[in-house]
C-alpha cells in the first residue's frame, strides 16, 4: 500500500504546530496503524529527522494510552476499535490520512500527538472510588449483586480512559468518562454509601479542569472504542441532581 500522511508536528506545549506531509510506500494491509507509524519513524530516523511522538503501550486495545484523530475521527473510522487495533486493511491503497492529537483545552499537547490527560486522573482522585481499607471488608458473597446490575456495571467499567470521548465532543466534554465511573460504582451495592458525594465531587473536578458541558450530541458514544452508552450520562445527571437536592 502507498499512503500520503499529514501528521501534526508540534515540538512543545507552547510552540506552534503544523501538518507535515510524508509519503509512505510498502505498507502492509496486515499492519496495525501504529506499526505503520513505526515504519514512518524508522524512515525518519534513517534520514536523521525527528520521529513522530505518540503515546502507546499495550497495543491490544486495553491500556488506553494510544489515541489520535484520523481524518477527523478519534481512533479512526472503525467501530469499537482503538488506534492500536486499527489495521491498515481498513484503508484503501493510496489513502490520504490526516493525523492529529486529541484537541481539548483540558488535554494540552506535550509533543506531536502526545497530550496530557492528567485531568482524568484528578477526576478519579476527586471521588472515583469506594473508600475501603485493605483487609477490613466483608466476605465477598455476603453481599449479593443481581447479575443484571453486575453486567451493567461491567459495561460502564469497561472504559479505558483514552479520552476519545473528549476529542469527539464539539464541547470537549468529559461527561462520558465521568458517567462511566459514576455508573459503574453507583450500580453496585458497595458503591451506595458514597454515591451522592462521589458524583458531586467528580463533576466539580471535571468543571475545574476546563472540560466543556454536555449538550447531548452523542459523538462520544460513536467514538468510544468500548462503546460505552450515553445512557450512563442520563444516570449521572439523575444522580447529580438527586445529590444536589439532598444537599
Amino acid at each position: 500500500m502507498r499512503l500520503t500522511l499529514h501528521v501534526w508536528r508540534q515540538a512543545g506545549p507552547a510552540l506552534p504546530g503544523r501538518f507535515v506531509r510524508y509519503d509512505l510506500s510498502d505498507v502492509s494491509p496486515d499492519m496495525s496503524f501504529l506499526e505503520m507509524l513505526d515504519v514512518l519513524n524508522h524512515q525518519l530516523l534513517g534520514r536523521r529527522e525527528e520521529p513522530v511522538a505518540f503515546d502507546h503501550d499495550c497495543r491490544e486495545g486495553i491500556c488506553g494510552a494510544c489515541g489520535m484523530v484520523i481524518n477527523g475521527r478519534p481512533h479512526g473510522p472503525q467501530r469499537a476499535t482503538t488506534t492500536c487495533q486499527l489495521h491498515m486493511r481498513t484503508f484503501p491503497d493510496g489513502a490520504e490520512l490526516w493525523i492529529e492529537p486529541w484537541r481539548a483545552r483540558a488535554f494540552p499537547v506535550i509533543k506531536d500527538l502526545v497530550v496530557d490527560r492528567g485531568a482524568f486522573d484528578r477526576i478519579i482522585q476527586a471521588g472515583g472510588f469506594i473508600s475501603v481499607r485493605t483487609g477490613g471488608v466483608p466476605e465477598a458473597n455476603t453481599v449479593l449483586v443481581p447479575k443484571r446490575d453486575a453486567d451493567l456495571a461491567m459495561d460502564a467499567a469497561a472504559c479505558i480512559g483514552c479520552g476519545a470521548c473528549v476529542a469527539a465532543c464539539p464541547n470537549a466534554s468529559a461527561m462520558l468518562f465521568v458517567a462511566a465511573k459514576v455508573a459503574h460504582l453507583g450500580l453496585l451495592p458497595q458503591g451506595q454509601p458514597e454515591r451522592g458525594p462521589r458524583v458531586v465531587n467528580m463533576v466539580s473536578q471535571m468543571d475545574a479542569e476546563g472540560f466543556g458541558a454536555c449538550t447531548n450530541h452523542g459523538e462520544c458514544m460513536a467514538a468510544c472504542p468500548k462503546e460505552i452508552s450515553i445512557d450512563f450520562i442520563a444516570q449521572l445527571n439523575r444522580d447529580y441532581w438527586k445529590a444536589k437536592g439532598a444537599a
Binding site: 471488608v137 465477598a140 447479575k147
Partner: peptide, 15 residues
C-alpha cells in the same frame, strides 16, 4: 476476592 469485591470490581455473577 473479598477486597476487590468491596472496591467495586464487577466480577461475573450467577443469577
Amino acid at each position: 476476592i473479598d477486597q476487590c469485591t468491596a472496591q467495586g470490581v464487577p466480577f461475573a455473577r450467577e443469577y
